[in-house]
Nucleic acid binder design. Structure first.
Lengths: 187, 187
DNA sequence: AACTGACCAAATAACTAATCTAGTCATTAA
DNA sequence: TTAATGACTAGATTAGTTATTTGGTCAGTT
């Protein structure tokens, strides 16, 4: 990512999270970024792709940081709990520092829903941890793909709650559900 | 429930599911029911309460029928799978016969979200099945209240999917998640 | 090769007038 | 006495119109 793209993404991040997707115009993003509007269209084919790429870059940052943070955890089940908890905590922190209101977060989430490619994001870490658990003899010989889908679906539902509730409020409920599911695949 | 209330609820059911909550006026419900508008306000303090009472009566019907249908199932884990599957199937059938479009279902669901009392509905059956499972020695000595909340939260999330997707489409995903959770509390 | 901003069709907002609706209540019917 | 009624009203919603803004383009600049 070059300096121009960074300026654009930074401006887009600030404006989208402060005013929402619809209420932020491409002209405003260009002005905030200090570039011409045409420049934005040289890098992204339209406003939705810009938004999508912003989301992807945020996700990559979070996932890479979490991967570093849990690199010392060796046991698969612990890794899964830590991974999910830290991702949630980091996203929550990003939400807070962006200053987005619940209404804005809801709108951004709905826009995500319309953009397919943002939804099936890279969760290779969780899959690897499940495979690791089977190798370590902690988990039964499960269908990793199916198990991943189940955990991912359920945990994904909490995304919605994060938009309106505090991290600490959701944490307890989420952990007891996750524990129940992980216990279901333990040997 | 007397004959007047039945006429009102029947009319409300037809119109709400055909046109949605907002697009159905109290005047229209009164006309469809063949009663004066004032009569509706003699039975329900406002339009929202009428909607809520309609929802409650539908839920009661579904739950009572499911309870009858699974009365011969003795094993707790089977009862839980059957209960959730049949409730889902019955609601799905009711949705289909009402002729409501996905957009209408979404609006009705959102109205439900605003009315608190509809949400914490009576799920005593599931709690009793969990207690039964502990007594039968099928389940560990779990915190029934907490376990119920977990299952209920996760299964409740599928409600949203039911509004847009077909029963059969959701069934498989839901069953593998439910199986994982139930396996988590087995002895 | 990367960037720019004036430009345009189409979407959205702003404004107004006209219509509709939730809820009330004095009256009627049972 | 109790249940039912429908005309009524303040406030919300809609429809129709105009004014403004917006996403995206592209000929020209750096």
């Amino acid at each position: 990512m070059n300096s121009t793209e960074l300026k654009i993404l930074t401006a887009a991040h600030q404006l989208f999270f402060r005013f929402g997707f619809k209420k932020t115009s491409v002209d405003e993003i260009a002005a905030e970024a200090g570039v011409g509007k045409g420049t934005i269209y040289n890098h992204y084919s339209n406003k939705e792709e810009l938004f999508m790429k912003l989301g992807e870059s945020m996700q990559t940052l979070v996932k890479e940081q979490v991967e570093r943070e849990i690199s010392h955890v060796t046991q698969a089940d612990e890794r899964i709990f830590e991974r999910i908890d830290r991702e949630m905590k980091l996203f929550s922190a990003k939400k807070l520092e962006s200053g987005a209101t619940p209404a804005i977060m809801q709108e951004l989430f709905e826009v995500c829903g319309h953009l397919k490619s943002l939804q099936k994001y890279n969760e290779i870490g969780l899959i690897r941890d499940l495979e690791l658990g089977v190798e370590q003899g902690i988990f039964k010989k499960i269908d990793v793909e199916q198990t991943f889908k189940s955990i991912y679906t359920v945990m994904g539902q909490f995304m919605l709650k994060w938009l309106f509730m505090d991290y600490e409020e959701v944490k307890l409920e989420r952990n007891s559900i996750l524990k129940m599911m992980i216990d279901g695949i333990r040997v």
